Simulated scan of single mutants.
Amino acid sequence: MTFVGKKFPNLSVNAMNDLGDTFKINILEEAQKNNKKVVLFWYPKDFTFVCPTELRAFQAALGEFEKRNTIVIGASCDTAEVHFAWLNTSKENGGIEGVTYPILADSNRNLASTLGILDIVSEQYDEETGAVILEGDNVTYRATYLIDEQGMVFHEGINHMPLGRNINEYLRLIDAYAHVQENGEVCPANWEEGKEAMTANRKGVAEYLTSLAN
C-alpha cells in the first residue's frame, strides 16, 4: 500500500540522538507542529556497510535540507541503545559519530509494519495449527518518505538492500514540490530549480515541448 497523497501514519516511535537522549517522535506531528517538510529515511541495520555511507551523506547535506525548511530523520528497527553505540563509533570503525539528526528506534516494528517496508521474504505454515509463519530478516528496505507541512506524503521510494540512495534527488524533489506549492505549475521530467516548469493543460505541455526543440 502506498501512502503517497495520504497523511503519514499517526504513530509515535522511540528515537535517539547523538546526546544520548531517548524520546518519542511522531512524524505527522513533527511536520504539522513545526510547519516543516520531513525527509524520513529507513535503513536496514546499524553496524552494517552501505548504511553508514547513507547516514553520513544525509548529515553532509543537512544544511541544504535546513535551507529548504526540511527536517531529516533516520530510522531502523534497532533499539535506541544500539543507535547510541553506533553514534559513538568513529568512521574509522564503521560508525556514524558526528551524525546529529534523530534516528527512530522502531524496535517493535509497529511503524515499519504499518508502512509495509519490512523484508519478509517467505511464508511457512505450521502443520498443526495452519498458522502462517513469516520468515525473513525482519529489517526494513531502504525506504524514503518526503512529507509536506500538513503531514501528507508527496514522495515514497524503496531501494533493495545493496542500493544506496542519491541524496541530491531528494533535494530536487523537495525543490520541485515547493515550486508546485508556490506557483501552481507542474514540474516536467528532469526539472531542477531555476528551470522552466509548465501549466497542467494541453497548451502548457505543447509550449513546453516546443521550447525543448528550440
Rank of each mutant, 00 (worst) to 15 (best):
K33G: 06
A112T: 10
G194W: 00
D148T: 01
L173E: 02
G98H: 03
N88P: 02
K195D: 08
T129K: 04
A200V: 12
T140L: 02
E30H: 03
I96E: 01
T79N: 06
V186G: 08
I71M: 03
M198G: 09
W86I: 02
T70G: 08
N69D: 06
E185L: 14
K67R: 10
H160T: 13
I174W: 02
P9D: 01
L146P: 05
G194R: 01
E123I: 11
S76H: 13
R165I: 03
N17T: 00
T22F: 13
L55I: 11
I158Y: 12
L104V: 06
G20F: 04
S211W: 11
F49T: 15
D46T: 10
L111C: 14
I117W: 01
I147P: 00
Q181H: 09
T144D: 00
N26S: 06
N93H: 15
F84I: 15
Y208F: 14
F49I: 00
G184T: 07
T210D: 13
L209A: 11
Y43G: 12
Y101F: 08
A143T: 01
W42M: 09
V205P: 08
K195N: 11
D21I: 15
A61W: 04
I120A: 08
L19E: 10
C51L: 04
Q150A: 07
T79P: 10
C51A: 04
G164P: 05
L163F: 15
E64F: 10
V121C: 13
A200K: 08
A206C: 08
L115S: 10
I147R: 08
L115K: 02
S90N: 09
Y141D: 06
G130D: 00
G74N: 01
E29V: 01
L209T: 08
K36T: 02
T89R: 10
L111F: 11
T144P: 06
A60K: 05
E81G: 05
E193F: 06
T79A: 03
E29I: 02
N35S: 06
M152T: 13
Q150S: 14
N190K: 14
A85Q: 13
G204F: 12
I117Q: 14
F8S: 07
L146F: 07
A178T: 15
A131I: 06
N17S: 02
L62M: 12
G130H: 05
